[in-house]
Nucleic acid binder design. Structure first.
Length: 331
RNA sequence: CACGGGUGGGAC
């Protein structure tokens, strides 16, 4: 990108605000914070005035990198240069505040944007909902959802999923179920992710039979499970001591034409090693090899620990060497 | 021109 920039300058095509905005954005997404900021300084040196998008990119990049002080300073600079922030500028900044846990400050910023005549859009609301959940304010999150409904900005699938996920994570599973009912009644259909969240939550709380019911419900709704759904089920069934059921899921997914991936294989092998069923574990390893799925660092870690726990230190060492030979570096 | 949010799986 820099070579191209040089080339254009040499050919007398001078970068404008759009060029610089692209560069700033590009450097931020490639995590080159200093370069991004250098581009901002360069454009100002060259007498090119930053616009709303320039500041939005900077604020977004700085917030993403958790440089909130710098983001605040940039936002301040923007306003003092009378560049008007838009909904995206505000949303990026609000998200940054939420990321670092400055929930009250985030709410103040929302008031500020509203008093400047900028309405929250679905993404701003989404940011606030996630922020409230992460600050432990799940009641506020639910309140924002009802605000959205009354203000004619209905929550989308992403918002419902993040809410259901957040509530499940903090053990508010009944509330999560309530949200699933709400979304259905508002005509937003749960997708494979929604079901995945519910299935995982049920399995983690020991409700494996109910998890299977939900899985059947999704199949009846013609939402086919994918490799993640099956891996979640397999893992959870093993955790619940339902090894036969887990194995059935493995064969079911294969018969559905869904190829197990490295996570599925690792989960299966881990499950069988955990109960000392080495024969089954080996069978899965063979399947994995046949399917040409490469073990990753986690697979090796799991196998090596299983061998050590079984007193097979020599084999564990051999596996470590093998892993290195295969170009997989131990973590 | 570019640009903002969110969503499920494995070892520890």
């Amino acid at each position: 990108a820099m070579a191209l920039l040089d080339e254009m300058k040499k050919n007398g095509i001078f970068p404008d605000v759009v060029t610089y905005n692209s560069l700033i954005h590009g450097f931020f997404v490639s995590k080159n914070l200093e370069e991004a900021q250098a581009m901002f300084q360069e454009m100002k040196r060259e007498g090119i005035s930053p616009n709303t998008n320039t500041y939005s990119s900077l604020i977004h990049g700085l917030c993403q990198a958790r440089k909130l002080e710098a983001a605040k300073a940039t936002f301040h600079e923007m306003k003092s240069n009378v560049i008007i922030p838009d909904v995206k500028t505000y949303t990026s900044f609000i998200r940054g505040l939420c990321i670092v846990g400055e929930w009250e400050e985030a709410k103040c910023t929302v008031h500020e944007m509203e008093s400047n005549g900028i309405s929250l859009d679905v993404i701003t609301y989404s940011t606030m909902i996630l922020g409230s959940i992460r600050s432990g304010k799940w009641e506020e999150a639910l309140g924002i959802v009802s605000d959205m409904n009354s203000r004619g900005v209905p929550p989308d699938l992403a918002i419902y999923n993040s809410l259901i996920h957040g509530l499940s994570e903090i053990g508010k599973f009944e509330k999560a179920k309530g949200v699933v009912c709400d979304m259905k009644s508002k005509g937003v259909s749960p997708d494979v992710v929604t079901y995945g969240i519910m299935i995982r939550a049920l399995l983690q709380t020991g409700h494996w039979e109910e998890a299977k019911c939900i899985f059947n419900e999704m199949k009846n709704k013609e939402i086919p499970g994918d490799v993640i759904t099956y891996s979640t089920l397999i893992h959870g069934l093993f955790q619940n001591g339902k090894c036969e059921e887990a194995r059935d899921m493995y064969y079911e997914m294969k018969s559905e034409g869904i190829s197990p991936d490295v996570v599925t294989f690792t989960t299966m092998i881990h499950g069988f090693c955990g109960i000392g069923n080495w024969d089954e574990a080996k069978r899965i390893l063979c399947d994995m090899r046949e399917q040409k799925v490469q073990p990753d660092a986690i697979t090796y870690y799991m196998l090596i620990s299983a061998l050590i726990k079984d007193g097979q230190q020599t084999e564990a060492m051999q596996l470590l060497e093998f892993m290195a030979e295969r170009g997989e570096s131990p973590n």
